[in-house]
């Protein structure tokens, strides 16, 4: 069975498509995780049913390692699934998806290990597990209990596959840059390194060395004001996008190491306030 990066993504798309999910594209702004995509954060609120799945490139500036660490990435890829309300057999469906991509739960000793999820910037929290395959965490499995400070009713199940880790387990390799991205026996085989290593090098240098902190502080302020203005204008989606921008700018400042502990808490609070207002607006207009 083929285990290259893009085949696994295609198989997951196929699998979740058959589960009735809307297959979406990644959100086209920098985010730290698939959860931040409005298709998860906002759609998890309100009464309406919703099923979606998508790949989300996720930026964690603090994890940048100049393309030199075999496991840590400035930008990794998550495969995100949201099922609302959570189906009673969601665990079984999830395990079926693993079999579909060629990961035998018995052979890899798949386990559900307690791990409650929390996003302080989104004011979101849920209970669930990290799913282990051969001791490696390959998925975060969460039942959303609240988002933006609002209780979720009905409750959504969120499945976040860490694609790099998952596929490294499938391919049995130790260095992310050795992952085969497309068919290794095809006419133009590419590895993960071929596709992504330059980005890792350059963005690490950007965020650790050349990032202009005062400028990013200004950008943060701008994003924050824009978000607030848009909330007043009742434009929830653009407002939320500026909340996402603020969140990413905060991540950049955090990675640059220019925030003291108090400032850090303060910035998280400011992003959370924006997220809460966006969620509130979303709820008021019952878009859910």
């Amino acid at each position: 069975m083929k285990t290259d990066f893009q085949t696994i993504i295609l198989k997951l798309q196929e699998f979740w498509s058959l589960q009735g999910c809307v297959i979406l594209q990644p959100y086209d702004a920098e985010v730290g995780a698939g959860t931040f995509h409005p298709a998860t954060t906002l759609k998890a609120l309100g009464p309406k049913s919703w099923r979606a799945a998508y790949v989300q490139p996720s930026r964690r500036p603090g994890d940048g390692r100049y393309g030199e660490n075999p496991n840590r990435l400035y930008r990794h890829h998550q495969y995100q699934v949201i099922l609302k309300p959570s189906p009673i057999d969601v665990q079984d469906i999830y395990l079926e998806s693993l079999r579909h991509i060629g990961l035998d739960p018995i052979l890899h000793d798949v386990r559900f290990v307690e791990d409650d999820w929390e996003s302080p910037t989104l004011g979101a929290a849920g209970l669930g597990w990290e799913v282990w395959a051969g001791g490696q965490e390959v998925t975060q499995f969460t039942y959303f209990q609240q988002v933006g400070g609002f209780p979720c009713n009905p409750v959504s199940a969120e499945l976040t596959y860490g694609l790099e880790r998952l596929i490294m387990t499938l391919q049995g390799i130790e260095n992310v840059y050795d992952l085969t991205w497309n068919d290794p026996n095809g006419p133009s085989p590419m590895t993960y390194g071929d596709v992504a290593q330059q980005m890792e090098r350059e963005f690490s240098a950007f965020s650790f060395e050349y990032l202009d902190a005062p400028m990013i502080f200004r950008h943060f302020e701008d994003a924050e004001s824009m978000c607030t203005l848009l909330i007043h204008k009742q434009l929830v989606l653009p407002a939320y996008e500026h909340c996402l921008k603020a969140s990413h700018l905060f991540n950049l400042l955090d990675a640059r190491g220019v925030l003291s502990v108090t400032e850090r808490a303060n910035f998280i609070g400011r992003v959370r306030a924006l997220a809460r207002q966006c969620c509130e607006l979303w709820m008021e207009n019952s878009h859910g």
């Binding site: 959570s86 039942y143 409750v155």
Partner: peptide
């Protein structure tokens, strides 16, 4: 710590099966 799931109003540590 307990949770709700689906569209039920009951709560348990993880969904009941």
């Amino acid at each position: 710590k307990s949770m709700r799931w689906g569209d039920l109003s009951v709560s348990w540590v993880r969904p009941l099966r």
